[in-house]
């Protein structure tokens, strides 16, 4: 998945996403934010390493009529 992107790119995306929410990260926060994003990206990388077959490859579960 796209998680292999550069952390700096993800920091930029995080700042842009925050702006979409109406939040402007302060310049002074960028370093802390970069550190947090780096840690979070490690967790997301682990998440994507865990293989779960996507929905099209399996029988859809649900109640019978």
């Amino acid at each position: 998945m796209s998680r292999a992107l550069d952390p700096e790119d993800w920091l930029r995306r995080a700042v842009e996403a925050a702006r979409r929410m109406g939040i402007e990260p302060a310049e002074a926060d960028r370093e802390l934010l970069a550190a947090e994003v780096r840690g979070l990206l490690q967790a997301l990388a682990t998440l994507w390493e865990f293989h779960v077959p996507s929905a099209l490859s399996g029988w859809r579960e649900g109640p019978s009529p």
């Binding site: 925050a18 990260p25 947090e36």
Partner: peptide
């Protein structure tokens, strides 16, 4: 600042 950054990181 540290909590603010941690919360904002969620936008990633």
């Amino acid at each position: 600042p540290a909590t603010r950054a941690r919360i904002l990181a969620g936008s990633a």
